[in-house]
Amino acid sequence: MTVKLESETYPDTYFAGAYWGPRKEPPEECARRAADFLNLLAKCDPFLAHWYMPTKSRKDARKYPLMPPDLTTLAEMFRRGVNREKGGPVFEDLGFSFWFDNGGPDRDCADLRIHCGGYAEGFSNSCFLSLPKQGANAERLFTAPALDCVVRSMALAWEPEWVAAMSRTHRDLDDRDGKADVWLGWVTYLARHRGTVPPLPAPVRIEPVEDKGTLIVLTPERFTVANPEHVALARRVRELLERAGLMKPATS
């Protein structure tokens, strides 16, 4: 597999994703978690403090604000996102989906895709945040402190098994064959019940997230796959985490 490196003409793009296994929750509980997450996310950066209900046209993108979060509105949005065959019954064990963004133009927009309440065997729930592709907002968010805040917000609100914030080229490098159970991001969170994070080489930073789990930040500067030292560090950290049994698939 050939991994494309970042360049001046085609900048890399970043995301943060939280993942957890089967967890039966009604739309109201998904709404509560989503509201908690949006309120926490708003404290990370002003760009992440404005969200809007999905619309058919970009010109209407800012007509229906979701901030401050309203539990009744969010619960109804999740309820509408139930999984079903067209004209057929609802698949309750597949949970609810909800997609929305912050109303910006294509390359300066963030969007959220949330799947919550699924409890089918082997099912994976998730909260996936795509960050802007370029511009001042992107540059401000593509930093360790900003992604640290985003990952903590996901961990506290969703109580996931794991969270990774990283670039897409980094993901492709970390998961070359598409079989990785857990991505090791620039910033990673691992739930406490997965096990104890072992000592990791400098400059890696390890911090608790309340009593829920552990945050791992690979480098204080922007992690890039164009830097061989960053790549070597990520491989070594993955080896140590795998050896400690921390990179297994989500189960709860």
Results as ranks from 00 to 15, higher is better:
Met1Glu: 12
Thr2Arg: 15
Thr2Leu: 14
Thr2Tyr: 13
Val3Tyr: 10
Val3Cys: 11
Val3Ile: 15
Leu5Phe: 08
Glu8Leu: 14
Thr9Leu: 14
Thr9His: 12
Thr9Tyr: 11
Tyr10Ile: 15
Tyr10Met: 14
Pro11Thr: 05
Pro11Leu: 02
Thr13Pro: 01
Thr13Lys: 14
Thr13Ser: 12
Tyr14Asn: 10
Tyr14Leu: 13
Tyr14Pro: 06
Tyr14Phe: 15
Tyr14Val: 10
Ala16Cys: 14
Ala16Met: 06
Gly17Ser: 13
Gly17Met: 13
Gly17Tyr: 07
Ala18Lys: 04
Ala18Trp: 04
Tyr19Pro: 02
Tyr19Asn: 11
Trp20Pro: 00
Trp20Thr: 08
Trp20Glu: 06
Gly21Phe: 02
Gly21Arg: 04
Pro22Gln: 01
Arg23Asn: 09
Arg23Thr: 02
Lys24Met: 11
Pro26Ile: 07
Pro26Leu: 05
Pro27Thr: 03
Glu29Val: 15
Cys30Gln: 01
Cys30Met: 06
Ala31Leu: 00
Ala31Cys: 00
Ala31Phe: 00
Arg33Gln: 10
Arg33Glu: 11
Arg33Thr: 05
Ala34Ser: 12
Ala34Phe: 05
Asp36Ser: 15
Phe37Asn: 05
Phe37Asp: 07
Leu38Val: 04
Leu38Ser: 09
Leu38Phe: 10
Asn39Cys: 08
Leu40Cys: 08
Leu40Phe: 03
Leu40Arg: 15
Leu40Gly: 09
Leu41Glu: 06
Leu41Val: 07
Leu41Thr: 05
Ala42Asp: 06
Ala42Ser: 13
Lys43Asp: 10
Asp45Trp: 01
Pro46Trp: 04
Pro46Val: 00
Phe47Pro: 03
Phe47Met: 08
Phe47Leu: 09
Leu48Lys: 07
Leu48Trp: 05
Ala49Glu: 06
